[in-house]
Nucleic acid binder design. Structure first.
Length: 549
RNA sequence: CGCGGGGUGGAGCAGCCUGGUAGCUCGCGAGGCUCAUAACCUCGAGGUCGCAGGUUCAAAUCCUGCCCCCGCAACCA
């Protein structure tokens, strides 16, 4: 992974408080990001911030915000200013390690970038002003889609919508079908725009086969006031796509339109900012999004960039949705799970663990309290916490000293005295499988490897009964178990960073205090069995995860 | 014939591409152990792999048809 990595999530719509779906996406992206930082080439990138940039944000315009604000008797700006911190606070608590947060109401960088992009699209002849006719419900004050209608009537107002014609700027996506097909087909091999998981790529390709329609990119100001004005046409405001998608480059002030000092224009590219060159032109770009907006990211976004003469992203990582107790989360069903409730009851890491463990990237997952408790008890409390506890207590009973397991000689009965031998022989392959799982974005598989090591550890302790030994033999054997836990802790680091550090602190490994620093790297040495020569003593055992009633 | 995903012991999944004793996690039952957070370990019960055909010495795995569930179908993470 020699290249810089730029990772983004979709920007959230803050018309209400954040829910579990928002959290899922951020956690997945954060785990990926943390792994990229932890596994970077430290010689090339001593500082993590030079190797990885992780951006999230909020999409604050649109009719829905406008209407929610009216309902609550505040201005749209007041509404978003009140709600956006809810997202930021929650993500802060969840240890989402983002480097940048873009708000689409930001007029310093976002607006100018969006307007610059619009102008480029316009100059390229990709925007056409046309009249658009649709079914408009005056009660809802918006155009209806087929889904909104019941027997041809608005489901809320029980009235037939009227045909209304208005002027829109259209983005001529229909003309990009052939080019997009090539881009995505190449992406399935390499060099194009890769969609993960690949069945989503097939899905998108078949969408192209069905034919692409032009996309409405603007609304008359009369029907949408809360948005970015169309340059050169005061009567029109941009519709979501040009505004929201552009956040991925506006956070870099890509066109240097913000004119602020940190983005001194780059001599090579003329009008591209320094950040734009570093994190877009010369980086590997990964967008993490939900399946609902895949087509916009897979089709419209690259087509926009191409028209503007900007390179296309490298990868689209699409996650599924989270159901609740087996059903779609919805207010009417009353099964909406509030992230804060989970955090309060169990803590941040159990939630991060659950989401990483239960929701394979790409597929839908389910949140159920029952399953949550099950996983909390079985994996975190019983397997992990108990393994740590029993090993540490046994060592403490012998005075807390451990020996460097690399020092003992392997003899004929070595498997008995040094249970670590079999892991030592395999530690490289464990780490290899783990890394490979990450490179394929199979996060749950990577996590599973750590869990498997816990199971192996517990099994071996029972086989070997270290408590029945005494003296140096006992210490030898226990030292190997401590070493196993050190590896487990490192593997857990991208997923549940705080817990990983707590484990290492109880183990008292030398690098423990640096583990949560952004610049920390899991070195090849750390992955090696018995590599921590300075590690001589373990710390005091503590309960890692208490029983929750 | 709109598109896509899926149907494997009680639950959730892997296996299917590259046919050859049906595997994992959780739950359940019985035993064991006692270092540990009533934890941990072992063994066991439980499946005609959606249905029906076909190919083959052999199919969960390949082919054909059908049934059922779930998403998406243009602006809901």
């Amino acid at each position: 992974m020699p290249q810089r990595q730029y990772i983004t999530t979709a920007i959230d719509y803050p018309n209400a408080a954040p829910h579990m779906g928002h959290v899922l996406e951020k956690v997945l992206a954060d785990v990926v990001t943390r792994w990229k930082r932890l596994s970077r080439d430290a010689k090339k990138f001593p500082k993590a911030e030079d190797a990885v940039r992780f951006q999230i944000g909020t999409d604050e315009h649109g009719v829905k915000i406008q209407r929610t604000a009216e309902k609550e008797g505040v201005t749209p700006k007041e509404l978003v200013d009140r709600n956006v911190p809810l997202f930021q606070d929650l993500y802060g608590r969840l240890q989402i390690s983002y480097d940048a947060f873009v708000r689409t109401t930001d007029k310093k960088k976002h607006w100018p970038t969006v307007q610059a992009l619009w102008e480029k699209l316009n100059a390229a002849g990709k925007l056409e002003k046309r009249s658009y006719t649709g079914l408009y419900c005056s009660g809802c004050e918006r155009f209806m889609t087929k889904k909104d209608l019941e027997d041809g009537k608005c489901a809320i107002h029980k009235a037939a919508p009227e045909e209304v014609t208005e002027e829109n700027y259209f983005f001529t996506l229909s003309k990009d079908a052939a080019w997009l097909k090539t881009l995505l087909t190449e992406g399935m091999k390499k060099g194009g725009y890769q969609i993960v998981p690949d069945f989503r790529a097939n899905e998108t390709l078949s969408l192209i086969e069905q034919g692409l329609e032009d996309v409405s990119f603007s609304r008359p100001k009369s029907s949408l006031a809360w948005g970015i004005p169309v340059p050169g046409d005061e009567d029109h405001v941009m519709y979501v796509w040009c505004d929201a998608l552009t956040n991925y480059i506006s956070g870099l002030d890509y066109f240097g339109a913000g004119g602020i000092s940190e983005v001194a224009r780059h001599e090579r590219t003329g009008d591209v900012s320094r950040l734009g060159v570093e994190w877009w032109d010369d980086a590997e770009v990964t967008h993490v999004i939900g399946k609902d907006i895949s087509r916009f990211h897979a089709l419209i976004w690259p087509a926009m960039l191409k028209a503007a003469g900007v390179r296309t992203p490298d990868r689209l990582l699409i996650h599924g949705f989270l159901t609740s107790e087996g059903e779609k989360m919805s207010k009417s069903l009353g099964n909406v799970v509030v992230p804060q409730d989970v955090i309060e009851k169990y803590g941040v890491d159990p939630l991060r663990f659950y989401l990483s463990h239960e929701v394979p990237v790409g597929r839908d997952g389910d949140f159920s309290w029952e399953r949550f408790e099950e996983l909390y008890d079985s994996a975190l409390r019983n397997k992990l916490g108990n393994l740590l506890n029993r090993v540490l207590i046994l060592i403490q009973k012998e005075g807390g000293e451990i020996i460097n397991i690399e020092k003992f000689k392997y003899g004929s009965d070595d498997m008995y005295w040094n249970p670590g031998k079999e892991w030592a022989d395999n530690s490289t392959s464990y780490w290899k499988v783990y890394s490979e799982a990450f490179s394929e974005f199979k996060l749950n598989s990577a996590l599973e490897i750590a869990v498997n090591l816990m199971v192996i550890g517990n099994g071996r302790i029972d086989d070997l009964k270290p408590w029945s030994l005494s003296g140096p033999d006992k210490i030898k054997m226990l030292s190997a178990f401590a070493e196993l836990l050190r590896h487990i802790s490192l593997m857990l680091l991208p997923f549940i960073p705080e817990t990983a550090q707590r484990i290492s602190r109880q183990l008292n490994v030398p690098y423990v205090e640096k583990m949560l620093e952004k610049d920390f790297v899991i070195t090849d040495e750390m992955k090696q069995w018995g590599s921590q020569k300075k590690w001589k003593k373990v710390g005091e055992p503590e309960i890692l995860f208490p029983k929750v009633e």
